[in-house]
Design a protein around this nucleic acid. Structure first.
Lengths: 369, 369
DNA sequence: CGCGGGTTTCAAAACGTTTAGCCGGCATTT
DNA sequence: AAATGCCGGCTAAACGTTTTGAAACCCGCG
């Protein structure tokens, strides 16, 4: 039973290759390849023979060999500062879904916001011959060497959530100016006049944009810009905490925080100083997350379209890979002001965090919008 | 200036290959390869010639070709249910760091807890000829086809956070029995006697383990096991919300929730029903996250060593890849009970979420422990 | 001078695909 | 009956590495 005919049961754990299939079915390699990629016209009988052999040998095309031959890996590299930062999983997910939909895979790297690590990551991706790169650049400049690499190698890059004025490259970002503007206007409309800002690192383009939006809104609302009410953090919890202490000591009556993590820090500082939101100050935060639903007061936030950020970036990149080399594009995605309670407008939006249908997995529903 | 000598300045964007380097430096391909992999003994002068050529041509070894030739990709595949579930980024990060440290890369896939997607992911990874796979299996059985694939292909698998009694495979999990046991004992010690459980899907091994730990603790504390106080969710927010409603209607005075996301849901239900924690019931949650630091009362949680889960799994996998095929290993990592306020022991641990040093990036510090 | 032994270098064969170019039939056209 | 065109299939050359023998060279020793 076990050794009937010339049954070659791959005892050595070797996986079958295309030539094994060819031998097994008595056709040429070419024909097998044609069947696998179901090319136009292979005779019905031959095709069947080949298909049987494939099933029998458990053949699985070797994508490595394919990549080498076609000079295309169907892989796109993505570099983010840190996947543990809750902002990025959704962006990555968006990119991954969009990529997969078009037959691409994602190779993910973390730069930890470190320039050398970032450069190493790019180096790695280039060596792996990815077809394109999605880059959320670490804070700081483009080093000359990185610049050179991007210049010399002719694979497409798309910047995600970052722009560089002096580098004309495709980029997909959220409209941070607009988001910040709306946030601060809302603060003002709810009666706040001493409005403070906890900003991200101003070397990062989006932090700068949010700062600009902040300023513009102040002006628009005829409020003075008071430098002591602006403090720069680094987008991390700890810096929000310290910035919060510093800022609150100047008794603002409204605060706009430029990201989620720093808001967490600020809230800790708030409690420690015995202050209360929204009684003592109104608060608008950037970035919304499901778990904020349990915090009281419910936070008014400016939500960024994280998922789309990723998916549109991936789509643009793949378009570039496909050969479209039109002018560099700057895509700005609109944020959404979600008014809740932290500015004193106790607009109790019942079920706010429960708008999922029971059967709907959370990530999907977040992904949709 | 531009066309001096036989200066071939790669006008066509073609990247340099090893043979270009060989030609440029007048040696054989073999020698270049030797230099690149700095093999033992290449003549000093030749080595220098080659190195110059490499720099000049901006040569970068093609890892695809290398993989094909060596039949090793130095890549490990990792499949998780959903990177957007806040549990996983840290696990992935642990795996990625450990892998990179040994010269491996991570190729990440999301299964969305769907069996077909999971199978497709495995299929893809096998086609990409990854050297090994880290698998956090989707809820549900090993389908026969998946089983077969794992059996036939002889690349190593390591299960992460999952075990299957009938499948002797390496696995790295948290000691969920122990974690649940401690959680429930703590609840009991703080004077609760009608203790409820919001469980994960009991088809998932760790949910089962937590349930066992729950039960064991009850017994140990001489409390009766009351089926109406046990409700099964699916680890997502929405199910925690519904389970919360169901459970709270039976007025437990203590609740142990088997994961973070469901806790979020429960807390929403709690508020809606006008109940208070810890006054009306004590609460212990599984999984700890920095942002919980802003929630009041501070939550008592059982923290899982997420980062290690990933890193140890990767290390084990790489060891297997290296050829070690000893007996299957089941590694259990100990969780840590973090007592805060949600059981009524108002042990105000000042600065609990602020134990970072100011200069320490959050992800790093989380990663450490 | 011849020869073993150790470097240093090489040419060529893998690795598993894709694909350009070719060729033998068969049917259709002149 | 010969020329034309197409279909179905094949051979062989890429793709960019690693690696296996083996060749060339140098050394000193008998």
């Amino acid at each position: 039973m076990s050794s009937s005919k010339h049954n070659k049961p791959k005892q050595t754990g070797k996986v079958a290759s295309i030539s094994d299939v060819a031998r097994e079915s008595g056709v040429s390699i070419f024909t097998v390849s044609a069947v696998v990629n179901n090319k136009s016209h292979v005779g019905k009988n031959l095709r069947e023979r080949v298909e049987n052999a494939i099933r029998k040998l458990n053949y699985r095309p070797n994508l490595i060999a394919r990549s080498l031959s076609k000079q295309k890996t169907q892989t796109i590299g993505m570099i983010v500062p840190d996947i543990v930062n809750p902002f990025f999983p959704m962006v990555v997910r968006g990119a991954e879904d969009a990529a997969r939909k078009q037959g691409y895979n994602l190779l993910l790297c973390n730069s930890d916001d470190s320039l050398p690590k970032e450069e190493a990551a790019v180096e790695l991706l280039l060596s792996k011959r990815v077809d394109g790169i999605l880059l959320t650049k670490a804070a700081g400049d483009f080093s000359p060497s990185l610049r050179q690499m991007i210049q010399e190698v002719n694979i497409p890059f798309v910047l995600v959530m970052r722009t560089y004025a002096d580098l004309t490259k495709d980029a997909v970002v959220s409209d941070d100016y607009q988001g910040a503007y709306e946030a601060v206007c809302h603060l003002a409309r709810s009666g706040r006049s001493r409005i403070g800002l906890i900003s991200g690192p101003l070397k990062i383009s989006n932090a700068k944009e949010r700062w600009r939006g902040f300023r513009a809104a102040l002006e628009e609302q005829n409020l003075p810009y008071q430098p002591e009410l602006v403090v720069e953090g680094d987008y991390r919890i700890e810096s929000g905490f310290r910035a919060g202490h510093a800022l609150l000591s100047h008794r603002p009556d409204g605060i706009y925080v430029a990201n989620h993590l720093m808001t967490i820090g600020l809230l800790q500082a708030t409690e420690e100083m015995g202050l209360r939101c929204p009684e003592d100050f109104g608060l608008v935060s950037f970035d919304d997350y499901p778990w904020l639903g349990v915090f009281r007061p419910r936070l008014t936030t400016v939500e960024l379209p994280k998922y789309q950020l990723g998916s549109e970036a991936a789509e643009l990149l793949i378009q570039r890979i496909g050969g479209d080399d039109g002018k560099p594009v700057l895509k700005k995605l609109l944020p959404e002001l979600r008014i809740r309670e932290s500015c004193g407008f106790a607009q109790f939006v019942s079920g706010d965090h429960r708008r999922l249908k029971p059967s709907e997995p959370i990530s999907d529903s977040l992904a949709k919008k």
